[in-house]
Amino acid sequence: MTVLQSFRTALRIVTDTPVLVAFALAFGVITALNNASGSAGAVGSILQLFALPALTGAFYTVIDGARPGSDTDLRASTAAQRYYVSLLGATLLAGLVVLVVAMVVLGGLIGSLGFDRVTAVLNGSASLTLVELAAAGVAFAVFAAVVYVFTFFDTAVVLDGKTAAGSLSRSVDFVFGNLRQVVGYAVVATVATSVVDLPVLWFVTLDGATTVAGAVAAFQAPMSAVDIAVVAVGSTVTTLVGRSYKVCFYRACADDPRGSKPESADGEWTA
């Protein structure tokens, strides 16, 4: 019940709290600029690193305060300042973790396929076999699973007041303490955001590429102003729904007396 009830609560909050659209739009614009090239991409990268922590603290606080029965009365501007350092530090630490995991997984994949083979696939002179495609899929699944363990670091900072290092540890405890619910949350969140994310990724970012080489070339090509705008709108929608859901889900599990205990992983998450 927690998974679906939290999603319904998030949708209710989104429709009843119009100010959230402004926060989500800011996220969307920064994300779009970060995906662009040249000076726009540089600006987006800077904002992604230094502006998002303040925006996240304010955004999550407003979402939390809009939940039914919430007793949160912290102002968004105060939250942006209070959690900034911890969120910035946690973002850097989480980025380092992702980088290390990516290097290990990618290194293992290249080692199994062979560097020359990977190079041939990327430059378009060869195609992946079914076995190689399956190996790449397994590698991606492992990477995603490991990274997902740390995905709740930002909610741990804002909703639990954790420090940068403590937020990553709290995220790990939260995931394994609510494992079945988190799996359900991941499925619902992925499906809900993919409705918008996948078409934008396919038709805009990857320009409808049907080969690995084509996808790499499209990803490296400069984005037009129209493409940036489309990515910004898409990211705004997924941010609005996805992050609202994340806060509601985290609160629901954390408020559950069983939420921090490993045995809560045996609880039901289906409705």
Score class of each variant (00 low, 15 high):
residue 249 F to T: 05
residue 180 R to A: 13
residue 156 A to S: 14
residue 124 G to V: 06
residue 197 D to K: 09
residue 71 D to N: 13
residue 29 V to T: 09
residue 186 A to N: 08
residue 29 V to L: 13
residue 102 A to C: 13
residue 225 A to I: 06
residue 23 F to H: 06
residue 174 F to A: 03
residue 111 G to K: 14
residue 190 T to C: 04
residue 74 L to C: 02
residue 7 F to G: 03
residue 261 K to A: 15
residue 91 T to G: 15
residue 164 A to D: 05
residue 259 G to P: 10
residue 225 A to V: 10
residue 100 V to N: 03
residue 22 A to H: 06
residue 31 T to Y: 08
residue 129 T to K: 00
residue 210 T to I: 09
residue 102 A to K: 03
residue 207 D to N: 14
residue 240 L to N: 04
residue 160 D to E: 13
residue 251 R to G: 02
residue 23 F to A: 08
residue 64 D to E: 08
residue 121 V to L: 06
residue 77 S to V: 08
residue 77 S to P: 07
residue 251 R to A: 07
residue 21 V to H: 07
residue 123 N to S: 13
residue 149 V to P: 00
residue 155 T to K: 11
residue 90 A to G: 13
residue 121 V to A: 09
residue 58 A to S: 15
residue 162 K to M: 09
residue 16 D to M: 13
residue 135 A to K: 12
residue 9 T to R: 09
residue 152 F to G: 00
residue 60 Y to M: 14
residue 149 V to I: 11
residue 234 G to A: 11
residue 41 G to Y: 10
residue 126 A to P: 07
residue 118 V to F: 05
residue 179 L to G: 11
residue 191 V to N: 08
residue 128 L to N: 02
residue 43 V to L: 15
residue 69 G to Q: 13
residue 59 F to I: 06
residue 210 T to Y: 03
residue 230 V to T: 05
residue 93 L to N: 01
residue 233 V to A: 13
residue 53 P to H: 06
residue 87 L to S: 07
residue 118 V to R: 08
residue 57 G to K: 05
residue 253 C to K: 10
residue 62 V to F: 15
residue 191 V to P: 09
residue 230 V to W: 02
residue 6 S to L: 10
residue 91 T to D: 10
residue 198 L to E: 02
residue 1 M to I: 05
residue 88 L to E: 01
residue 66 A to S: 12
residue 174 F to H: 07
residue 217 A to M: 01
residue 186 A to W: 03
residue 137 G to Q: 10
residue 29 V to K: 01
residue 138 V to R: 00
residue 209 A to D: 01
residue 171 S to G: 10
residue 119 T to F: 02
residue 49 L to M: 14
residue 14 V to D: 04
residue 132 E to P: 03
residue 52 L to M: 15
residue 167 S to G: 02
residue 231 V to M: 07
residue 252 A to D: 09
residue 12 R to N: 09
residue 164 A to T: 04
residue 265 A to W: 10
residue 226 V to A: 15
residue 209 A to F: 04
residue 83 Y to M: 00
residue 271 A to S: 14
residue 221 A to I: 02
residue 47 L to N: 11
residue 210 T to G: 05
residue 262 P to S: 08
residue 193 T to R: 13
residue 56 T to H: 07
residue 171 S to T: 05
residue 92 L to H: 04
residue 257 P to R: 10
residue 217 A to H: 01
residue 219 F to A: 15
residue 32 A to V: 09
residue 176 F to Q: 01
residue 184 G to Q: 02
residue 29 V to N: 06
residue 25 L to K: 03
residue 98 V to I: 12
residue 179 L to Y: 07
residue 88 L to N: 09
residue 140 F to C: 06
residue 166 G to M: 03
residue 219 F to P: 00
residue 265 A to V: 04
residue 233 V to Y: 05
residue 178 N to I: 00
residue 29 V to F: 06
residue 26 A to T: 14
residue 88 L to K: 03
residue 207 D to V: 07
residue 109 L to H: 05
residue 214 G to E: 01
residue 202 W to A: 11
residue 235 S to T: 13
residue 250 Y to R: 02
residue 33 L to Q: 10
residue 142 V to N: 04
residue 62 V to E: 12
residue 132 E to Y: 06
residue 78 T to C: 00
residue 269 W to C: 07
residue 163 T to W: 00
residue 225 A to F: 06
